[in-house]
Nucleic acid binder design. Sequence first.
RNA 1: GAGCAGUUAGCUCAGUGGUAGAGCACUUCGUUCACAUCGAAGGGGUCGCAGGUUCAAAUCCUGCACUGCUCACCA
Length: 698
Amino acid sequence: MDKTYNHKENEARIYELWEKNKVFEPNLTKGKNTFSIIMPPPNANDPLHIGHARFVAIEDILIRYHRMKGDVTLWLPGSDHAGIETQFVFEKKLKEKGESRFDYDRETLYKMIWDYVSKNTGAMKQQLKQLGASCDWSRHKFTLDPEIIKIVYQTFKRLWEEKKVYRGEKVVNYCTFCGTAYSELEVNHIERMDPLYYVKFPKANRGHITIATTRPETIYVDTYLAVNPKDKRYKNLKSEKILNPLSNNEMKIIEDSFVDPEFGTGIVKITPAHDFNDEEICLKHGIPSIQVVGTDGKIMNVVPEKYGGGEYIKEARRKVVAELEKEGLIEKIDQSYKHVIGVCYRCKNVIEPMPMMQWFIKMESLAALGLKAIKDKKVKFVTKKYEKVAMHWLTNLRDWNISRQIVWGIRIPAWKCQKCSQWTITDGETPKKCSECSYRKLVQDIDTFDTWFSSGQWPFATLKTTKKGDFEYFYPTTVMNTAYDILPFWVIRMIMLSLYVTGKVPFEEVLIHGLIRDKQGQKISKSKGNVIDPIGMVEKYGSDSLRMGLVWGALTENDVSLSEDNIRGQRNFANKIWNASRFIQDKKGNGEKREDKEFYKHLEEVKKLVTKNLDSFKISQATESVYTEFWHWFCDECIEKCKKGELSEKALREGLVVFLKLLHPFAPFVTEAIWSFGYAQDPRHFDSPILALAKWPL
RNA sequence: GAGCAGUUAGCUCAGUGGUAGAGCACUUCGUUCACAUCGAAGGGGUCGCAGGUUCAAAUCCUGCACUGCUCACCA
């Protein structure tokens, strides 16, 4: 054996050994405990980032532990088509070639993206292997596998039949840059400084009132003003004739308590089509909605060119303000007005609320299912604070807009009748006739599902389509492990949709982990230049070292600050395992010593400690205890005692076998290298020629 | 504006009622046949502040300060 552990020589051949022996494929034996995790599917198109490596480390520790314990263990890998993310990346590529998505019809574009993704998806699988992920590749699923799509369609159809899906025109969050609507969750709110314009609205007889607004560009179509009924200043406003300063139309006055008399001048102009708040007021007061911003982000030509019709909002606003100023209708402009605006989570541009026909899921009954399951502890959160977060989300959901105006995704199986305009929903096949009027000319909706609508069905969609009997055997799965940033997007939706479709929760335990930060505790981002490439670290220090580093030094549920120093330290630890084994392999003595008893006693305690921590999902504590016990007890004390003749060589050998097993989930490669290719070729100590299949020492 | 966290050694973090801990960094020493990717020894913290409960508080309670994250329709 080499003097230092060489991860480069060992890792690939060890993963091959595992794969060749099918150690990751469960045997569906009756009457045994099961342990299963559905892997959060990484984006099929992208290389893994350091965040993926963290969940791999956590999940692989649990999976390997349970496999060694003798549970029938399944870790089901997958990849995600990641709708908008992937289409956006692809469009960027097109742009580099001087093309755009509009140069292709939807079928061609879909095919192009499909090929592009297929080309890249192998890299992700290869990287998961480099990280040592002991998942069952024979059960790998892609979110666009036909069988998966079929299940998603069935769910949609059932939701439709049970009236939990509706198509409606509502104000939705639309990104004019991405060219698609989003759900409320894809909108981020940022604080920004914008001018607040105080605009004079003339009275018909004489004088004027003043209205504060940040959106003067819509004034032309505005027809309603609102005041607080308690505001004495405007008690008689209703009897007065107020004119729109641009269109000269008469403004109608409504009273509503939502108006804050303290803000601005206490009068609000109502823009029903482009503001959620205003939409609500208008529904309440029966005010019609007029769309003024188009999906292209331009002011529509209901507004004359003079006032910005046909221009982008920014330019239209400039024009309108210039016109108003020319007419002396701007009283003042507050340039230091701070407010919060919605921006697209992806491209960071301003989200334009606008009315659109979209597919919505009614969330009330679904959320109730989820809430009940959590309250009844059918789904348990390992960390309580995240249970609070989940409950908070489930109690504050609006109807979920699931249609996206992109091609890369699962196309909505809805066909519109060309005669009666009713929708026919199927579970995938093209309907021959309208379900309402039997007319035979139908046109399919061009939108696709929100990616989260399909990934919200991932736990049962995968298990129902992998191998026969998988669903019955493994569902509900044992643990769902993912980062806290997608708790609202994914975790609560899996809970709701799974309960709705299968009547059962998708998983019993939710283990939420934190994000990776750099060594200063700073958020990792490309613009900061502090990204950590997991594969680079694997190549430099070895897979075991990176994995240990990722679960070391912070609680699983908290963010972890990852430094190269830390990973190097774990590399040293892997080397320590290697060298201790190298030392012990030459010790053949069989005699016993009086001190052995104390040794075995402590060894038992170590086994129990590590096991207990793993059983309660205390991954970092488990890692720390096995690290400390191996290095500072077994190596620093026990090996030294043995050298001095105060401990038998036999005890040391047996201790090493125990530690190799205890260490294996955390550092699978180096321990397997020792076991399979090194010291371990002594059958007396082994219940399995492959450590990954050896029996957990308890 | 609301919610949720956090504030412990130079740095990153553990520690939830009983004599302050780890990793890294630092200091000194060590070429004995596993490992210098090592070993031994050591320095360093009145556990954010102020009260309270208790025989006993980093740990429980109250208030305050600061930091972070998330949510949020006030024009």
